[in-house]
Amino acid sequence: MEAAGAGAGDIAGDIAGDTAGEVAGDVAGERGRLVNVAYRLLGSLSEAEDAVQEAYTRWYALPRSRRDGIVSPGAWLTTVTARRCLDVLGSARVRRERYVGAWLPDPLPDHAERGRGAATDPADQMVLDESVTMAFLVVLETMTPAERAAFVLHDVFRYSFAEIAGILGRTPAACKQLAASARRRVRDAPPPAPAAAQADTVRRVKAAWESKDIAALVDLLDPAAVMTADGGGAARTALRPIEGGADIARYMVAIAGKAPGLELLERSVNGMPGLVARQAGSVTTVAAFDIAGGRVTRIWTVRNPEKLRPWSRS
């Protein structure tokens, strides 16, 4: 996985005080990989960045003699980042019980859609692949924190179980069992449709939605389809999942009718074809889809403005 560039602004002074070789090779170059690991563990860009930032802060808080004695700064930073992610995952269930409506992972834009803000925007460091599709991240949400960490670190980032054991504080055999349990959950999920087939279905959904054609939408939606929306209490949306293709179609048309000037755009969402709704030049909704047999089985719509920041151009 490619490494990203410079560290965050508030550690820039510390970085400047170190040797150029350490910054380029062992420390700053780890940032992109750490953000990618943390996002897959947490499903939240802001929380991933916080976890990575804390790892860097702890690194530069070490006496220089301690840092010089660490054989692999990257392994040290990964351990601190992953353990912080485990702490966050451990408290996530309680926090999400207080969350208004359903909680969904942060949607990721591709490079063309990312904002032109700070160079350290975590979205700019994300590598989009099958391990960040919305469907995959939703499956990860069903795992225990330890299962998720073992699976992501081993199956996605190819860490050995001996390395994972040091992070989780368990034996390599126990970590192998955790990853195997997580892997079964992933295998139980239906495989994603090829990107080209998904793009065609999403394009047809967009056309039917724009024309408010309920019959066409019903034909494109699986009868057992489910739509889940995340507004976080900051944007109006359905607080509970909407089940059934017909009900989803009526809901989508009702939304379009209440949003004059709504513009729908075909965009990559977490590396797969999706839709973005824009109103008065601002992104208000990002929709990701799961498609099987040419019909939509799941729709995940994110409307929480905090989660849409990477989609806003500065």
Rank of each mutant, 00 (worst) to 15 (best):
T285C: 08
A216V: 05
R58W: 00
V286W: 14
V27F: 13
R31M: 01
R185W: 06
A254Q: 12
L86A: 06
D247W: 03
L140N: 06
D222R: 06
D129T: 09
K176F: 09
M143H: 12
P223F: 02
T301K: 14
W76D: 09
G90D: 01
Q125G: 04
L153Q: 02
L275C: 11
C85L: 03
N36T: 00
K206N: 14
L308A: 08
R236T: 11
P241F: 08
G166V: 03
A20Q: 13
P241L: 06
I242D: 00
A149L: 02
K212F: 11
A288Q: 08
V52P: 02
W209P: 15
I70K: 14
R66I: 09
A280E: 10
A20R: 05
A249W: 00
T142G: 08
G29H: 04
V100K: 13
S65D: 10
L220V: 10
A196I: 02
V202L: 04
E2F: 09
A292E: 04
W59E: 01
P107E: 04
G115Y: 05
T171H: 11
V35M: 06
T297K: 15
A225D: 01
G293N: 03
P192K: 09
L128W: 08
D200F: 09
A215R: 15
A208K: 08
V37S: 00
G166E: 04
V138G: 09
S314E: 10
V100E: 03
V218L: 08
A28W: 03
A174P: 09
R58D: 11
S314M: 10
A6F: 13
Q198M: 15
W59L: 06
V156C: 02
G43W: 12
L262G: 11
R31D: 00
I214V: 15
R40V: 01
G9T: 03
G271H: 05
G293E: 00
R148P: 05
E263D: 08
V253Y: 13
E130A: 15
D230I: 10
Y60C: 11
G271I: 05
G261L: 03
W103S: 13
E97F: 05
S131V: 02
R148E: 00
E147I: 07
G261M: 02
T144P: 07
F161W: 07
L137V: 03
D50E: 11
